[in-house]
Design a protein around this nucleic acid. Structure first.
Lengths: 99, 99
DNA sequence: TGAATATATGAATATCTGTTCATGTGATGA
DNA sequence: TCATCACATGAACAGATATTCATATATTCA
């Protein structure tokens, strides 16, 4: 936006949807938890002290928004962040809070 | 998070609150509209084709989160983004969408 | 094939959130 | 001081959303 034109309306709607995904503490905690290592669902649930079902539901949201990717290995499905972009968005937010 | 520890729990809650503010298209549109110039409330409302009341409510949310600041000049109150950090967060989101 | 384990999903519910309508507050100018 | 303009705010309502419970799906191993 610095020297760009205003974003198109539909881009702004997509953008709102993206930030909405970041705007939930459970999802943020999941993202931070798996940011440096792959983890299966139950391990995430235990790490956060939350139900497996809750985590699965939120992982689906994250998956649909391409913020995490998964890999099956036997009975378990390992999740991790999809790319470093995600980390950067979170870090930028933290910077704003801590400033 | 790159090489940091996991953010504290309370930081993550604050972070979720911050992203929640960005997760609404009306607020995003307001922020983009006033990103390069100060504007009074009615002008913003007209620019977006929305009611003055709606804009005022959302400006309050933005104010409370220190994303915009305001300045009274006579009967009008001019709003603009509080700092360039806000722009950067939005730009980072756009980059993610357009990638 | 059947039991056990890991994950996903659907339905239900309680809570939160954005918008609207009505009204309040503050500033200007006659 | 009164009318008008610009903005803020409270209440109410509709729509969205996160969690839970129950259950389904998929994989492994005996």
């Amino acid at each position: 936006m610095e020297n760009r034109n205003l974003p198109e309306l539909d881009v702004l709607f997509d953008l709102a949807d993206l930030f909405k995904v970041f705007g939930d503490s459970t999802r943020l905690r999941i993202m931070c938890t798996i940011s440096n290592e792959e983890m299966p669902v139950l391990a995430i649930a235990e790490a956060l002290g939350m139900e497996q079902s809750t985590i699965s539901h939120q992982l689906r949201v994250l998956r649909q928004n391409k913020l995490v990717r998964s890999r099956r290995e036997g009975k378990q499905i390992y999740y991790t962040l999809d790319d470093d972009h995600v980390k950067k968005i979170i870090e930028m937010g933290i910077d704003h809070i801590l400033e």
